[in-house]
Simulated scan of single mutants.
Amino acid sequence: MKDNPIIKIVNFHGIDYPTPVNLSYWWNFGFLSAFCLGIQIITGILLAMNYTPYVDLAMASVEHIMRDIDYGWLMRYTHANGASMFFIMVYIHIARGLYYGSYMSPKELPWCVGVVIFILMMATAFMGYVLPWGQMSFWGATVITNLFSVIPIYGTEIVTWLWGAYNVGNATLNRFFSLHYLLPFAIAGASLIHIAYIHKDGSNNPLGINGNIDKIPFYPYFYIKDLYSTILFTIFFSCFVFFAPNILNHPDNYIEANPLVTPAHIVPEWYFLPFYAILRSIPHKAGGIVAMGAALIVLLLLPFINTSEIRSSNFRPIFKKAYWLFIADCLILGWIGGKPVSSPYIEIGQIATVYYFMFFLIIIPFLGHVEKFLAFCPPVRKISSAN
């Protein structure tokens, strides 16, 4: 039995995997992200059994699930709020990776696969937001798919292909439903690759130093830590599902889609707002689309533009200040993304967008050279004169 290759893989990655002894609870958010993915896949399959991807029946089928199916309301609220929980866990997971230098060599591949997972998540969540076929669903799909029209030569053909017709309609809904059902399995596969790459080179740790010296088996020590964090997360998640299930959703999406009535203010889900703010901060349509795409691409480039040899921000005082300014900047972008396109929100969004790209393209590469210079400079000693 022990010679079974499957047993060996499970044993290495889930039981005997040598883990740095000093991992903090910040490392639990990777497991919690996988936990959220599992919840989304299970509830999504159950919802798909009763959902009707037809424009005249989509919202009615959602109401049928909520009112007539046993525990349908629980499945729907868990899936809808689970998307927000998934993004919260992933955003914290990315923030931890940035703080502790999880993108540095030899972690380039796990980081890049993680960014691909994040992009797939965004695509999946966007298409899932369209499925209830409310006002925000319809107009969000119209606005976002029209962005592809700026692609030279083939832009119009790509938009028509996405729609499946010459306007957002039933063919669009069917395509989005099919892709929304399939993409989570692609995310699950990419997550396994992500974990395999991490385990191949060993996990990072809060000190950012070689963790091969002091390691312990993953089981039972980190099983207990993951179990504890999962219990706390489940309580947090349940508060939304049972007491405030609609607080994270836009009220206009409970109105059936009407192509003849444009909402006063079209906004995406909250987890897209920082990127939506970057899109709107550039006055030119094509420029805004390029900037929004670049905001994701720059995450892929991060391991290759980094010049620092120090992983943990605990030992990088200048970078730590820039990092927390970056976190505040992302929160500001999220706030701006939900505001109208008017002054002073436009100017604030433009300043925040500049700092977003400056952090990755200027501060991170530049600080690495500064740190190397300071490391080789002799310390300046004060000479006190005797009285």
Rank of each mutant, 00 (worst) to 15 (best):
M1N: 13
M1F: 15
I7H: 12
I9G: 08
H13K: 11
G14C: 13
W26G: 11
W27D: 11
F31S: 04
S33C: 06
A34R: 05
I41T: 00
T43G: 08
L46M: 14
D56Q: 14
A58N: 00
S61T: 05
S61P: 01
I69E: 05
Y71H: 14
W73C: 08
G82K: 00
S84H: 13
Y91D: 10
I94K: 05
P106T: 04
A123M: 15
F126V: 08
V130I: 13
V130E: 10
P132F: 04
P132S: 00
W139I: 06
G140S: 00
T142E: 06
Y154G: 12
G155H: 01
W163D: 06
R175Y: 04
A186P: 05
P217L: 06
Y228R: 13
F242G: 07
N249G: 10
H250D: 15
N253E: 00
N258K: 03
H265Y: 09
P283W: 07
K285W: 11
K285R: 15
A291Q: 06
A291L: 09
L301I: 12
S312W: 02
S312R: 06
P317Q: 00
K321V: 15
W324H: 08
W324R: 07
I327R: 05
W335N: 07
G338W: 02
Y345S: 01
F357C: 03
I364W: 02
P365D: 07
F366N: 06
P379N: 13
V380A: 14
A386M: 14
